[in-house]
Each structure stands twice: as structure tokens, then as C-alpha cells.
């Protein structure tokens, strides 16, 4: 087990290096001259050259990459060429917003995905199953950004039920920072007003971000439950007089969760990518929004940093999923 985790961590480093190479090359071959964009429309060629030299953009690609990686190892993501901020400082500001949104969304999709999957399977071909299936097909078919805009039009523009965007109202101060998750911090501070406000704000974006994942988790859990409920061992459990509730929620569910877990891992990755769209639509002050803002100015460093952070996060999630298999299935051995 320990060896397995160490091995996977080592592999993660290799993957990260690969990721950094790809991201680096893509950012450098992309059209647009970051120095020119940073210097502004009125800058002379000399001024642009000064910026190029300052950020090392005039040096060969291999040297640039080496310098970048040397910094990265020490936790230095470089400087934004446009704002001249240290990228790490920006990340520290924007990351919690993204991870709070993703955390709420993935928890919501896992919890309700599994629940709806069970209900849909147990009440197969009833109205409940039909309703759930209608929404799951919608969920996998509708693009996130479109759903986001539609919900904004409906609930923010037509009916003023939810705010259009942001993490909190402008008049509400963020709670004292401990976990940097506003929902948790406000609760820790006992500040119910701020909690309610934060909750009100996160609802729509979290729903939009979780909808496709919720749909696919529901679908796969329904299919797996249906299969497991027809297995021999379920028949035996019925014949032994074990209650339906125990059979469904304990004996069948644990079997069904094994494939569902793969789907959760996969959907988590999609969700991390989806934050870029959802944050943009809902003006959510996270790293997705931050990366988009930088990309418009060919400002590479933030984009690379965000890509690496999201990539690392996905890798950790995958490791957790693989460990989860061992928890669910005693036949899995980590060698």
C-alpha cells in the first residue's frame, strides 16, 4: 500500500514534467507577442525589447524552459508580464474560490448522483425513473456555459431569485480567513448572514458545474444497480430474509459503486476544466477566470500555472480514486 502510493507519487512527478513541457510549448508557439501586448500600443521597438530581455523572452526556448522549471521546483510560478504580480500571490487569492466551487459541485453530484441512480434503478420504469432519466439525458447533452447563461437569464434577469455572479454581495465582507472557503469560514466565525449570502451566490454556479457530472454519475449508478440487483448473491440475500433496505443500500450499492467511482474520477477532471467556463459566465473570482483574463493578453505564466495546478489536482483525485477501489473491493491488491 505504502509502496503503491510512493510509486504513484513518483509517477505523478514524471507526468507533471510532461505536462509542463506540453503547456510550455503550446504557450510559446501560440500567436501573439506577449512583450508587445504588455508594452502597450504606443511602445517603441526599444521598449518592447527591454521587456523581452527582462522576462528572458529573447533567449532560446530550452533555456527559457530550464529557467522556468528551476523556479517551479522552488514553488515560483514566475511573474505575470502584464501586471508584474508574482503568479503564486495571485493563485493564493484565486485558488480557494475555485476549489470551494469545485468541492461543493463534486460533493453535490456524488451525493445526488448516487441517490438518484439508486432510486431510478429500484423504481425502474416508473414515473420517477422517467423523470430522472429525462434530466440525466439533458445533463449530458447540454453545454455548461449555455445552461449557465440560461439560468442567469431566468433566475437573475427575469425573476430576481439569485445574484448574477460573484462570491458575495459587494457590501458583504469576506469572513476571517482560516480555510479560505467562505462557506466554512463564515460558519466558523458564527456569521450566519455571510454564510447565507455566500450560499446564495454559490448555488447557481455550483449547480451548473455539477449538472453534467450529476447526470453521468446517476446514469452509471443506475445501470450498475440494475445489474447488481439481478445477481445471484442478491437472490440469496433475499432468500435469507435480509431486508430490502439493507440489500439495496449496503449489499448492492457497494458493488455498484466500484464502476461509479471510475466515473466520479473522470467527471472530476471534466469539472476542473469546466470551472473555466462557469467562472467566466458567473464572474466567479477563481483561477479559471484568472487564467482566461491572462490568456487574452498572451500572458503565459498565469495560464501555465493554472494548468499545472489543475493537472496536479486531477492526478491527486485519480490517486484517491484508485485507493477507493481498494476500500470498496477486497479483491483489489496494491502491488
Amino acid at each position: 500500500m505504502k509502496r503503491f502510493i510512493l510509486k504513484r507519487l513518483a509517477l505523478m512527478i514524471v507526468t507533471l514534467i510532461g505536462l509542463s513541457v506540453v503547456v510550455f510549448i503550446v504557450s510559446r508557439v501560440a500567436p501573439g507577442d506577449p512583450a508587445k501586448l504588455a508594452a502597450g500600443p504606443d511602445a517603441t521597438e526599444e521598449m518592447v525589447q527591454v521587456i523581452r530581455e527582462e522576462f528572458g523572452l529573447d533567449r532560446p526556448l530550452v533555456i527559457q524552459y530550464t529557467i522556468y522549471m528551476k523556479g517551479l521546483i522552488q514553488g515560483d510560478f514566475g511573474r505575470s508580464i502584464r501586471t508584474r504580480h508574482l503568479v503564486w500571490d495571485d493563485l493564493k487569492n484565486f485558488m480557494p474560490a475555485t476549489f470551494e466551487l469545485v468541492f461543493v459541485s463534486i460533493s453535490f453530484s456524488i451525493l445526488f448522483g448516487i441517490l438518484f441512480g439508486i432510486l431510478s434503478a429500484v423504481y425502474r420504469d416508473t414515473w420517477m425513473d422517467h423523470v430522472i432519466r429525462f434530466f440525466t439525458i439533458t445533463g449530458v447533452a447540454v453545454p455548461m456555459f449555455w445552461l449557465g447563461i440560461m439560468l442567469q437569464l431566468l433566475f437573475s434577469a427575469k425573476v430576481h431569485l439569485f445574484p448574477l455572479g460573484g462570491r458575495l454581495d459587494t457590501m458583504v465582507l469576506p469572513p476571517p480567513a482560516r480555510t479560505h472557503f467562505f462557506l466554512i469560514d463564515s460558519l466558523l466565525a458564527g456569521d450566519w448572514g455571510t454564510f447565507a449570502n455566500g450560499f446564495h451566490h454559490i448555488l447557481l454556479p455550483a449547480f451548473v458545474l455539477s449538472f453534467p457530472a450529476l447526470a453521468s454519475i446517476t446514469r452509471i449508478n443506475r445501470a450498475e444497480m440494475l445489474e447488481v440487483l439481478h445477481k445471484d448473491f442478491v437472490l440469496n440475500e433475499k432468500a435469507q430474509g435480509i431486508s430490502d433496505r439493507l440489500i439495496i443500500f449496503k449489499y448492492a450499492l457497494k458493488n455498484a459503486l466500484i464502476p461509479t467511482l471510475s466515473m466520479i474520477g473522470l467527471r472530476y477532471g471534466w469539472m476542473l476544466g469546466g470551472t473555466i467556463l462557469v467562472e467566466t459566465v458567473f464572474n466567479w473570482p477563481g483561477i479559471g477566470n484568472y487564467a482566461v483574463g491572462a490568456a487574452v493578453y498572451s500572458d503565459f505564466q498565469p495560464v501555465m500555472a493554472v494548468t499545472i495546478i489543475l493537472g496536479l489536482n486531477f492526478m491527486i483525485a485519480n490517486l484517491l480514486v484508485d485507493l477507493g477501489y481498494g476500500f470498496l473491493d477486497p479483491r483489489v491488491k496494491y502491488e
Binding site: K231, D232, F233, L235, N236, E237, A239, Y251, K254, N255, I258, L328, D329, P330, R331
Partner: peptide, 12 residues
Amino acid sequence: FQDPMTFLNPVF
């Protein structure tokens, strides 16, 4: 039942 290989729940 007939087949002991499939009538016990594998994950418990």
C-alpha cells in the same frame, strides 16, 4: 443455492 461461487457477495 446451486453455485457457491456467485451466491456470496464478493465485496463483504
